[in-house]
Design a protein around this nucleic acid. Structure first.
Length: 515
RNA sequence: GCGGGAGUAGCUCAAUUGGUAGAGCUUCAGCCUUCCAAGCUGAUUGUUGAGGGUUCGAUUCCCUUCUCCCGCUCCA
């Protein structure tokens, strides 16, 4: 455990020291759970996004992309269920330090009343024997009626108080009912606090004319509301998908673990629209396809696993996570959800617009079912970065820190190094840089001994080093050093471009794990 | 939000009973060097997380606050 912790701390400080991730607004002490991507981080992140986009959009004839706005009509979030589901009244017990949802505590209390009714029924059934009429008993027995009334009154009052956001009354209700903490038995409660997981803001200049808005808590709704637009204008036939990448915002109560859980984060997701009844097969298909994508990066199959959800979200009929072994254990990296027709149907109701597809094969209209793949770009970044950071002990006993990023994703693909700073070697190196820079990201470095420069490039994750030496003057050849093996080969300058292109080509990487 | 730990240079860390901050690595300039960080010379960097208090004097003691890490909690 201490090792894990140490490793994670190394990841965080390496990310900062080598220009990948900085705490946001650091000169003001940072902002909780907000981070900035630095000069190298932005490249890595961009490359991951591109790798995903290529695999999901470009390589699928029936998947297209969009880029929806972060602001959406507020009714969107009523239809999606977020206004209800992302809005919890929470209360803490001061003695046990446990936190509960206030409404759940009260509902549990009402549940106990129902249990009492059941008890009465059983007792009566015993007493009356065969003559027992359950329906009549429930309607006439004064005790049962008392429990029922009480329960209904409690729920009504709670509903009204929550509606009015009268949280003091919710607390009063809990105190009046003498609800105790299930763990400690204590009735020592804090005030009820409303936690809204969505960030609110206002659209419009003046307070009177402005409109309350949310920053989107997920990108998916931007696709659902555009479903028909894309289907019609793109002449899409089911099954087809719409993909997008973009920022989403959640006001997490506790956001932690570096960039794993941030309040502002980027999703890469694809909604796949299918004929009702076929969702299960597509769900399985996408689980497989997405895992293959991960495996193509070569970070070891043993570091991935599926986690099938037993408790499903309000919209899903099946859901699984692809989990990755982060420095702090296996955690969710990507979600694959069978979302049914929940979202489209709900938007139909709220917007009073038909969101249906006419299926020419079946000759009928229907609301399509949706299978979603949704991956956190920041989590993918962390997965790759933390997995790539290694400390090696070499044969001579020295250690080297190397960031073994997949070459296809590395921010800088090659560093060009003159062996010494004289004899015309820098000039040749510069000319190589000038040539290669049209095709991929290269850098130049002449400072310090060449060995030190190699280690520097190792630490930032540059997969190739090209060294210009005195032989270059005679035969136009240079050495090409591979980061992971430290092996060097002698190649002609003219051959460099194709050699490296081959190693960093998305095509070659994506094909690695094709089924 | 609760409990525990921690904030000193870009990174890792020092500073003896309170006496106005140092080291290593890094970075930068130069020298020397024909291939895997540790050769030589020189240089930059800090309101010691922030604010307040006690004191002649605070990195050190007290209070407040912010941030990070771990656990609990929460998590579509």
């Amino acid at each position: 455990m201490a090792n894990q912790e140490d490793q994670f701390k190394k990841v965080i400080s390496h990310a900062k020291e080598y220009g990948y991730v900085f705490p946001s607004s650091e000169i003001y002490d940072g902002l909780s759970a907000v981070y900035d991507y630095a000069q190298n981080g932005v490249e890595l992140k961009r490359n991951i996004r591109e790798y995903w986009w290529k695999a999901m959009v470009q390589m699928h004839e029936n998947i297209v992309g969009i880029d929806a706005a972060i602001f959406m009509h507020p009714t969107t979030w009523k239809a999606s269920g977020h206004v209800d589901a992302f809005n919890d009244p929470l209360i803490d017990n001061k003695d046990s330090k446990k936190r509960y949802r206030a409404d759940v505590l009260i509902e549990d209390y009402v549940g106990k009343l129902d249990a009492k009714i059941d008890k009465e029924v059983k007792k009566a059934a015993k007493r009356f024997g065969d003559a027992f009429d359950k329906a009549q008993f429930l309607e006439t027995n004064p005790r049962v009626l008392g429990y029922k009334e009480k329960g209904a009154a409690i729920l009504k009052r709670m509903g009204q108080s929550l509606e009015k956001e009268d949280l003091a009354d919710v607390k009063a209700l809990i105190e009046e009912l003498e609800i105790a903490c299930p763990l400690s038995g204590s009735k020592n409660w804090t005030d009820v606090k409303q936690f809204n997981l969505m960030f609110g803001t206002r659209l419009g200049a003046t307070a009177e004319s402005s409109m309350e808005l949310y920053l989107r808590p997920e990108t998916a709704q931007g696709i659902f509301v555009n479903f028909l637009n894309v289907q019609k204008t793109g002449r899409m036939k089911i099954p087809f998908g719409i993909a997008q990448t973009g920022k989403a915002f959640r006001n997490e109560i506790v956001a932690r673990q570096f960039i794993f859980r941030m309040r502002e984060f980027e999703q890469m997701e694809m909604q796949f629209f299918v004929r009702p009844g076929t969702q299960k097969a597509w769900y399985e298909q996408w689980k497989k396809t997405r895992l293959q994508w991960h495996l193509s990066l070569g970070m070891g199959a043993e570091n991935y696993r599926f986690h099938d959800h037993e408790k499903l979200a309000h919209y899903a009929d099946a859901a699984a996570d692809i989990e990755f072994k982060f420095p702090f254990g296996f955690k969710e990296l990507e979600g694959i959800h069978s979302r049914t027709d929940f979202d489209l149907s709900s938007h139909e109701k709220y917007a009073s617009k038909k969101l249906q597809y006419f299926d020419p094969e079946l000759n009928e209209r229907y609301v399509p079912y949706v299978v979603e793949t949704s991956i956190g770009l920041d989590r993918m970044f962390l997965a790759i970065f933390s997995h790539s950071l290694k400390e090696e002990t070499l044969e001579n006993g020295s250690t080297r820190t190397v960031l073994q990023l997949p070459a296809v994703l590395a921010p800088t693909k090659a560093a060009v190094l003159p062996l010494v700073k004289k004899d015309g070697l820098p000039e040749i190196a510069r000319s190589i840089v000038a040539d290669l820079t049209w095709d991929f990201a290269v850098t130049y470095d002449e400072k310090d001994a060449v060995g030190r420069r190699y280690r520097r490039q190792d630490a930032v994750g540059t997969p190739f080093c090209i060294t210009v030496d005195h032989d270059t003057l005679n035969d136009d050849s240079v050495t090409l050093r591979h980061r992971d093996t430290m092996v060097q080969t002698r190649v002609k300058i003219a051959a460099l471009k194709d050699l490296i292109k081959e190693e960093i080509s998305m095509k070659n990487w994506l094909q690695k794990c094709a089924q």
